[in-house]
Design a protein around this nucleic acid. Sequence first.
DNA 1: GAATTATATTGAGACAGCCTCAAGTTTGGC
DNA 2: GCCAAACTTGAGGCTGTCTCAATATAATTC
Lengths: 188, 188
Amino acid sequence: MTTSPPRRMRADARRNYERLLTEAAAVFAERGVDASLEDVARRAGVANGTLYSHFPTRQALLEALLRSSMENLAATARELRDHPSAYEALVTWLRAAIVHTTAYRGLAAPMMRSLKDETSELYAACQAVLAGGEALLSRAHAAGAIRADATPEDLYALVNAVAWAGEQTSPEQGERLLTFSLDGLRPT
Amino acid sequence: MTTSPPRRMRADARRNYERLLTEAAAVFAERGVDASLEDVARRAGVANGTLYSHFPTRQALLEALLRSSMENLAATARELRDHPSAYEALVTWLRAAIVHTTAYRGLAAPMMRSLKDETSELYAACQAVLAGGEALLSRAHAAGAIRADATPEDLYALVNAVAWAGEQTSPEQGERLLTFSLDGLRPT
DNA sequence: GAATTATATTGAGACAGCCTCAAGTTTGGC
DNA sequence: GCCAAACTTGAGGCTGTCTCAATATAATTC
């Protein structure tokens, strides 16, 4: 029933929880976030009911899987506040966010939809990403490096759209789209 | 077995073909391109085998469904070649392409993937769209209205990415992304 | 270290969707 | 009106999601 990081779980439960996460990472990496959950359970060597009891929804599983990399992303944002160039700091972070979103095929869509959906298990994580970008954006705004009407939500959408385009075609195509958009985000 | 526009079909087959298209349009409009095909068959009042015999794959159905609007898009491109402003002509057409891609939820992904996939039933249609943009782009290039390194594929990716972003969040967010990108596509 | 209790796991089962194909039905030409 | 060709049917095999009563295991208590 729990989705939180293992708290006072029974030893077997904890073992299965970890094993499920490990195998889910592998399966999602191979087949994307829409991969069969039966497959995940099979590979983890447990019955599917066990998977559902640990992770009631696919998003809950995804959330647990992404937690640490999300935290890394937030930490990176914090570090970049000290970067000499406000603009470069922002761009570097945006690229990191895109890499994060490219971890599993099909991840961009839930990331995008969960930003405004409070009922989503990914909601908090998405908001954290938004906040990370927000800090760097306002610094870039202050430095006059980014057009004034660009919002954090714009950047969030951009990151996901670029990640999506990249996974549908090629990372290079995503990169090209990013280049154009970033140029369009310079002050007029 | 046929997917082409009704040619010498038996009367009942033709009736069912049309009916399936009509209902598919309705169902896809309601639930997006990943809607249940069983649903389409049910609503058309035929067995699912009939649907599969007319449209062997979901993409074949989609192709038949999109054919006329694709042709409109190509026609629009031709008309716009005479527009006084090469830049405005291009932007107008890009907007039309985005509207087209927003016809059904989930359409952007197959449009994007089929551009380079010759085995896709949507391949020809996607190539036609690409060609439509290509003509307007080269005119804009000649007029010095668009940066020289922008390719037709870039515009194609942009259209789909914007349509995707718009359907995941809001059309307004898509519009904002488009604005930034278009600014970034001006010559440097 | 056995009994008790709380916690987990199991896997069958209900359901939906995809797709196929042998059997049956309908149409249209003669 | 008959017949071959064209078309439709729907049960059935498959995969996948999700639930829940029965069962098993770990932790706690005495």
